[in-house]
Design a protein around this nucleic acid. Sequence first.
DNA 1: GGCTAATCGATAATTTTGTATCGAGATGAA
DNA 2: TTCATCTCGATACAAAATTATCGATTAGCC
Lengths: 224, 224
Amino acid sequence: MRAESVPEPTLRRLPSYYHYLVRLREKGQEMISAAQIGEDLGVHHTQVRKDLAVTGSQGKPKVGHRVEELIVSIENFLNWNNVTDAFLVGAGHLGTALLGYAGFERAGVKIVAAFDANPKMVGKKIQGVSILPMEKFTDLARRMHIGIGILTVPAEVAQETAEMMVGCGVQAIWNFAPIVLDLPQGVIVENVALYSSLGVLSRKLSVHRKALLAKASPEPVASE
Amino acid sequence: MRAESVPEPTLRRLPSYYHYLVRLREKGQEMISAAQIGEDLGVHHTQVRKDLAVTGSQGKPKVGHRVEELIVSIENFLNWNNVTDAFLVGAGHLGTALLGYAGFERAGVKIVAAFDANPKMVGKKIQGVSILPMEKFTDLARRMHIGIGILTVPAEVAQETAEMMVGCGVQAIWNFAPIVLDLPQGVIVENVALYSSLGVLSRKLSVHRKALLAKASPEPVASE
DNA sequence: GGCTAATCGATAATTTTGTATCGAGATGAA
DNA sequence: TTCATCTCGATACAAAATTATCGATTAGCC
Ligand SMILES: NC(=O)c1ccc[n+]([C@@H]2O[C@H](COP(=O)([O-])OP(=O)(O)OC[C@H]3O[C@@H](n4cnc5c(N)ncnc54)[C@H](O)[C@@H]3O)[C@@H](O)[C@H]2O)c1
Ligand SMILES: NC(=O)c1ccc[n+]([C@@H]2O[C@H](COP(=O)([O-])OP(=O)(O)OC[C@H]3O[C@@H](n4cnc5c(N)ncnc54)[C@H](O)[C@@H]3O)[C@@H](O)[C@H]2O)c1
């Protein structure tokens, strides 16, 4: 009941453990130690233990954890074995890529319909998911008790679209637009900040290159 | 020169300030205070000041910062005004979505070519970017001094593809596959962990719903 | 059966990140 | 001009996250 107090960094690492473990299982491995996970994923082994501890799974000294058990624990913890229906709004480049992806269902999210304001998109079907006109959103979302909204519309209309979703009972929004949504307290928003990612990349690359240059040139002992 | 010591959370917030500021500029606003930015983006105002400070931009008491100046500072800091050429490998659902997106160039990344192992994809052109066969990667990447590789291949081949990229001089990899790449020290890897994002979303939603249920039901004073 | 080595899980120390405080500078009004 | 007020930026404090330490447990081996 005090389960909300799980550190968010832990939450973010769990899926990467999960995928790693699934690959181990495919290879037929049954046991795994926290130390090995840490080494392979670049996480400190004590950190791995803490992270896995929140899922409730226990390891045994000398042998480590059962791969299968860990997988199930993580699935349970993240609620990945209960599928929640989601609506996607904005079936453009990114939206269709997400629709075409089969992998989200194992992460508890099933896109059951898509919506777009562009009449040219409406009526199409992608991977079995129909693209419907915006007018249908309100009614359908309410009737189907849609809990998750996936937002892949242009940034200019992201705020209003999100508000519309929330008005129809959507409790969580997966936001791909580069904007901070202002929504009622209690609504869960998860931003996929691709630009943040690019910012980090650009900055690191630029620093990296400057460091290389500095090493190459004589550098007259500047600064302390 | 000690510029590497910028906190990564700061790096991740800068792009969101950037987009916010660009929208302000479009609206014609010239000045902005750290307090206002903080309120609009849900960041503490002292944090905003610290973040902006790393870019070197200074504000003036009583009036705040010049919007235009801040934008330029952030661009400089992230090196977003120097465009670096990038190759994309894996022109599938996600790869084509990225190719179709015009917005990355303003973030200093220009996708100049795409590569795919599937002969059906090869030869196509998306937004002016040609999809080439994998055989051409090595030679072209070396000759064009490609610094950034964008990885949108299936997870099974992500590791080997990344190694191939690094072998051709690629210094930074933007990885969309749900796998932790094991690459030589010094190579910059930025993971877009969509599943992490989904993990956080699922977990929060599940906790949120349990909390709602608990409030609705009588709850006979369980737990300690 | 007892010893060794590996691993776990709890607790403590350190580092990083975020928040609050406070003096100083700038603006505009009295 | 002088004053009140707003905002900045530096410094101090608090919280969170990561890393290190250490005793406990167990499998395998002699
Ligand atoms: N494609 C990418 O690689 C990428 C990368 C980073 C961020 N994004 C962000 O994702 C979002 C979508 O990007 P995209 O490349 O798919 O854009 P897009 O233009 O291809 O798709 C947007 C879709 O939304 C629809 N739309 C527009 N207004 C609408 C409205 N009011 N209601 C419903 N639908 C509406 C359009 O018809 C279009 O199909 C944008 O916010 C963009 O900034 C995309
Ligand atoms: N599409 C999504 O929404 C989404 C979401 C999360 C993660 N991902 C990840 O992104 C990656 C790509 O996903 P996708 O949906 O675009 O898959 P996809 O199958 O549509 O595209 C993969 C592309 O890579 C090409 N390819 C396969 N093997 C290759 C090789 N050895 N060398 C070069 N190209 C090769 C294929 O021909 C295909 O065009 C995957 O790792 C996936 O897990 C995608």
